[in-house]
């Protein structure tokens, strides 16, 4: 009888330990953090760095674009001021690597001899196409999960840039007490800690033409910068104009205050 009790106690203690772990696992996601070097785009004089955006685009193109679209970004945007600063010819070459749907041919056919829809190389005016034909196909190829469009991802998440950076650099082995779902990956920064996306960045996932070492942190930093730009392409212009407007308003406020004192100088109030 005493043996029974002890077994019960031990098992009870074990259950409690298990539960403490589960409580931790289901708890709040870990707080996202900025990279050590901070973000060039934050602050009153925030701006993007062309080289960073170009590297970030390379990471997007070679790693992310396999599953994630940029529905609201056109190839031409890559040459816009305040962006990655590609030339129009570079943009044409980039666009030509993507295929976009082509209309019916002169016979009214929409499918080629293999029964596939006609496609043509993209031009700068086109938008980054989705790698999938539709949502069902996207889910079917990703174990039921839908890879979100990345155009606005840094604005569509709380503390977006830090969250994305932390997520990309935060993959780790699941603690023993966490029961992982099928095809799920552990990431303390993801709400619920279980994310369907496999770790996308590994040391040397891309090769930077400028010789920058492709560490996971570097690639995460670059691609987060790039995706901040896709979400907020007018940021540089906005902050520059903001400084001018604020300075102007300060002057106007000072003048008005002065005028106000003048107008009211003889009135008791």
């Amino acid at each position: 009888m005493s043996l029974t009790i002890r077994t019960g106690t031990i098992i009870g203690a074990f259950v409690m330990a298990l539960n403490a772990g589960a409580a931790m696992a289901a708890g709040e996601a870990e707080r996202p953090h900025a990279p050590q070097e901070g973000w060039s785009f934050s602050g009153i004089f925030g701006h993007y760095e062309e080289t960073t955006l170009q590297r970030g685009f390379l990471v997007y193109e070679s790693v992310c674009a396999g599953c994630h679209a940029l529905e609201y970004v056109a190839f031409r945007n890559l040459a816009d001021p305040g962006g990655p600063g590609f030339t129009l010819d570079q943009v044409r070459a980039i666009a030509a690597n993507y295929r976009v749907p082509a209309g019916p041919d002169e016979f009214g056919d929409t499918l080629d001899e293999n029964g596939l829809p006609f496609v043509r190389p993209a031009i700068p005016a086109n938008y980054f196409p989705s790698p999938y034909d539709n949502e069902q196909q996207a889910r079917a190829r990703n174990w039921g999960a839908l890879p979100p469009d990345l155009s606005l991802i840094t604005k569509a998440r709380v503390n977006g840039a830090n969250y994305l950076y932390s997520l990309l650099t935060g993959y780790e082995d699941a603690p023993e007490y966490v029961e992982m779902g099928e095809n799920m990956n552990y990431n303390p920064f993801f709400p619920g800690q279980q994310i369907a996306m496999v770790q996308p960045l590994y040391e040397g996932s891309v090769e930077y033409p400028d010789g920058t070492e492709a560490t996971v942190e570097q690639m995460a930093y670059d691609v987060t910068n790039f995706l901040m730009w896709t979400a907020e392409p007018k940021l540089e212009k906005r902050k520059r104009m903001g400084f001018q407007v604020m300075a102007f308003l300060f002057v106007l406020a000072a003048l008005l205050y002065w005028s106000y004192r003048q107008v009211w100088r003889d009135v008791d109030h």
């Binding site: 102007f248 308003l249 002057v251 106007l252 003048l255 008005l256 002065w258 005028s259 004192r261 003048q262 100088r265 003889d266």
Partner: peptide
Amino acid sequence: PVAETDTTNPDRRDFLYIATGAVGAVA
């Protein structure tokens, strides 16, 4: 005190109003 400095100088006061109005118009 403003009143002391500027009641003696109406030109400067007019200039102030014109300047304020002009900056406001620019806005």
